[in-house]
C-alpha cells in the first residue's frame, strides 16, 4: 500500500523537477493510477518508482502518459454529437470563420469526430480545430490520424446514431489493421501541447470541447480551468463538457446557460 505522504513526495518531485503540477488532481483517481502503474511496471517498492521518475526522462514520459487517462472514442454519446449537428453547427454556418478548441484531446478521436461533423455541414473549409493535451506522445497520434481498425464497427454505429448518413468507411483508408483518416480532416487540425493546470488562454474560440477531463481535477482546479475556458470563449461561444460534468456550483455558472439536456452551455455574459 502506498500512503498519502509518499504520493505527496512524488507530486513534489514532479513539480520541482519538471513543472508538472498534479497536486490538484482528484486524489482517489490519481492514486489509483499510480498504484496501478507501480504494479504494472513491477517496481519492488514505491521508492523505486519515485527514483525512476526522478532520474529517467524516458520513464517520466511513460509515467505522465500512464497516470493521466487516455481512454477516448469517436462519437461517444451519439446524442451529444446529434445536438452539435442540429443545434450548434447551423448557427456556426453564419460565421466567416470557426475556431474550436479540444482541450485535453488525448489521442484525438473526438477531434476527428468533430471534423467529420463540420465536413458534413459544409463548414470544415472555414474551420480550425485546435487539439491540445499535456502529453506530447498522444498528440503524435492525433497528428498521424491513425486508429485501430477493430474500433471502426463501433464508431460507425455511434456515427449513425449521431445522425450520420454516409458510409463511415469513406472517411478512412484501411491498411494493416489500421484506419488512416483522410488528410482533408487532419489538415484542419492544429496540434499543440497545453497544460490546463499551468498554461493560459491562447486564442478566442467559438466552441470549447472538454469532455471527461474535469472529472480528474479537484473542485478548485475545475473552477480555475472553467475560468480559463470562460476567458477563451468569444461572446455567445459554447462550452461542451462530459455527460456527468457540470457548470452548476462553479465560479462561472452565472455567465452560462445550458442549451438542452446535453452538456452544452452557451456563454451569455
Amino acid at each position: 500500500m502506498i500512503d498519502e505522504e509518499e504520493i505527496d513526495l512524488l507530486l513534489n518531485d514532479l513539480f520541482d523537477l519538471y513543472g508538472y503540477d498534479f497536486t490538484s488532481y482528484s486524489r482517489a483517481s490519481l492514486k489509483r493510477r499510480i498504484v496501478r502503474l507501480c504494479s504494472l511496471d513491477k517496481f519492488p517498492s514505491f521508492a523505486e518508482l519515485r527514483y525512476h521518475v526522478k532520474t529517467d526522462p524516458t520513464y517520466l514520459k511513460r509515467f505522465v502518459e500512464e497516470i493521466t487517462v487516455n481512454v477516448t472514442e469517436m462519437f461517444r454519446d451519439p446524442s451529444f454529437y446529434k445536438s452539435l449537428r442540429d443545434d450548434i453547427l447551423p448557427i456556426f454556418g453564419t460565421k466567416p470563420f470557426i475556431r474550436i478548441w479540444h482541450a485535453g484531446c488525448s489521442t484525438g478521436e473526438e477531434v476527428f469526430s468533430m471534423a467529420i461533423l463540420l465536413k458534413e455541414a459544409n463548414l470544415l473549409k472555414k474551420s480550425l480545430l485546435y487539439a491540445t493535451d499535456l502529453n506530447p506522445s498522444v498528440l503524435d497520434n492525433v497528428r498521424r490520424g491513425i486508429f485501430p481498425l477493430t474500433q471502426m464497427k463501433q464508431y460507425s454505429e455511434s456515427y449513425i446514431s449521431s445522425g450520420g448518413i454516409n458510409d463511415f468507411s469513406t472517411y478512412y483508408t484501411a491498411n494493416y489493421g489500421q484506419a488512416k483518416f483522410d488528410r482533408e480532416l487532419s489538415e484542419k487540425i492544429i496540434i499543440s501541447t497545453h497544460n490546463l493546470v499551468s498554461d493560459s488562454s491562447f486564442n478566442e474560440f467559438d466552441l470549447i470541447v472538454c469532455r471527461n477531463v474535469l472529472i480528474y481535477f479537484d473542485k478548485d482546479l475545475q473552477d480555475r480551468v472553467l475560468k480559463l475556458f470562460d476567458a477563451s470563449l468569444g461572446t455567445l461561444g459554447y462550452l461542451a463538457l462530459g455527460t456527468k460534468e457540470t457548470l452548476k456550483f462553479s465560479a462561472v455558472q452565472n455567465k452560462f446557460k445550458q442549451l438542452n439536456k446535453e452538456k452544452i452551455w452557451k456563454k451569455i455574459a
Partner: peptide, 20 residues
Amino acid sequence: PADYHLLIEKNRTFSLDYSE
C-alpha cells in the same frame, strides 16, 4: 453512472473516472 468508474475522495465526495 454507466461507463464510468466511481471513486470516493477523502472529503467524502464522488469522483468519476473513465479509465480502462
